[in-house]
Design a protein around this nucleic acid. Structure first.
Lengths: 249, 249
DNA sequence: AAATATATTGCATAATATTGCAATATGAAA
DNA sequence: TTTCATATTGCAATATTATGCAATATATTT
């Protein structure tokens, strides 16, 4: 039986009984309990269930789609997330937009950190849900069913009522002349509002998005304080940005 | 039985009866009283109940976690949900609060219905996420990690910007004289704001909550248009409500 | 105070988890 | 194809956790 089949069956079992037991699965799937344990761990990392001693139980009532964390585990995003952590200090107020990169940063936070997080992203909420010392403010608005976040007039207005220490912006295109640009109009408006209300702005961007551009303008390049990429800054040539006073990490 | 299952059952018992007894649990869960005692201690450490000699009682007015409540009374909730559907017409604007009962109503909606739904409940959003013709407005605010909903000043303010055709209120206590009352202060404020902004108010309540009361006042009984319970209205004696012009379903 | 019920503690046993490792399978690159 | 890297799986050794039992202590009732 393929591994994916096993994972599928485990999910089905959970949906049916709200729980699974290691030994049962081991017999049912014809693999060792070690393997089942590893399978459960994998599903647990994706947030699809909660691993407990002896098996697993159903996770939070939040739709699995809001927990799509499969894509936050890529090597690049892990590196970026790890680097971004250095800019987040206990006690701060952080604002972040939707997207898998910001979600990866949140997932990398130590579980006992003390923070206030302001976000319009449902996956971020689903992670922070059980961080005991993180206060979450969710920014309302119209649900964007593709991005798992809210946008629109209410969202922009709500953002203006906050002041954040740090703004974390998920992957976007950055060009020295064209500035920050985004792929959808609604999200670019949200990003702009978040930047305007924050003291310190960190753009998370894969290296190939630097010098690129997208259709919707967000802000000028110099509104950004730091750019975090997956590459070692000493091996990159981003002198233009450095001269403009932007830190490259 | 998994340990986590036991803990959940204990929580459910507490939510249902406001108390649990060591010996009963020991028999029910097929473990020694020592183990039950340790379980209770664990839950008590998490603040989910208060350990007392011989068992445990409900702790501070802290909500049991949504996760633990969603499997309680499911039969009643399904009946209530089905009855409530009759009041929801395509094209309407519906506003609903958090809670497992309203979530059950939403889960019972036909998938192709055309609606605008305004809510502060994450589980509701996660269900509607793949209803193609439902527009969802999410009401932002501070995340309440137990109820999976938002509350607070931002939430109230945001609600006032909407006008709904129908307001669906999850299970709450209703008394003819004392009016609608709720279990937490923050949620009672949200409920009140939702009622004030709606044309037609439907209260979803299990029969045993009628005539009961909770600590926080929401509104007078006559602010409600319909009460939906799990019982057949012809078998109930709620004449007082009927005389006050409230429809019983 | 005596009798009874409940708590606490330490301990033994069994169940489960973790880790490193080796065998095998899988897929990509030469 | 061959070769190399990587992923998957089971196994064994060790660590951790869960559970019941018994001895003792503490509270509650009569």
């Amino acid at each position: 039986m393929l591994k994916e089949e096993r994972l599928q069956k485990i999910i089905e079992q959970i949906a049916q009984d709200n729980k699974v037991v290691l030994d049962d699965l081991s017999r049912l799937l014809n693999v060792s309990t070690d393997t089942v344990r590893r399978d459960i761990k994998e599903l647990s990392d994706k947030g699809l269930l909660k691993a407990v001693r002896g098996g697993a139980i159903i996770g939070s009532p939040v739709h699995p789609h809001f927990k799509e964390r499969q894509h936050i585990d890529t090597q690049h995003k892990k590196v970026i997330a790890q680097k971004a952590l250095e800019f987040i200090k206990p006690g701060q107020v952080i604002i972040l937009n939707g997207g898998t990169t910001t979600t990866a940063v949140i997932a990398a936070l130590p579980r006992d950190i003390n923070l206030t997080v302001i976000t319009n992203s449902f996956p971020v909420v689903s992670i922070l849900e059980d961080y005991p010392h993180v206060t979450v403010f969710f920014i309302g608005g119209e649900l964007n069913k593709h991005a798992f976040s809210t946008t629109g007039h209410e969202t922009i207005e709500a953002i203006r009522n906050f002041r954040a220490d740090v703004c974390l912006l998920g992957i976007c295109s950055i060009d020295l002349k064209l500035g920050l640009t985004g792929f959808t109009y609604q999200e670019s408006l949200v990003d702009r509002a978040m930047i305007e209300t924050s003291k310190y702005v960190i753009a998370l961007s894969t290296y190939d998005k630097i010098g690129a551009s997208d259709p919707y303008y967000v802000c000028a390049a110099n509104a950004i304080d730091v750019i975090v990429t997956e590459k070692d800054p000493s091996t990159t040539d981003l002198s233009g940005f450095k001269e403009a006073g932007i830190l490259i990490k």
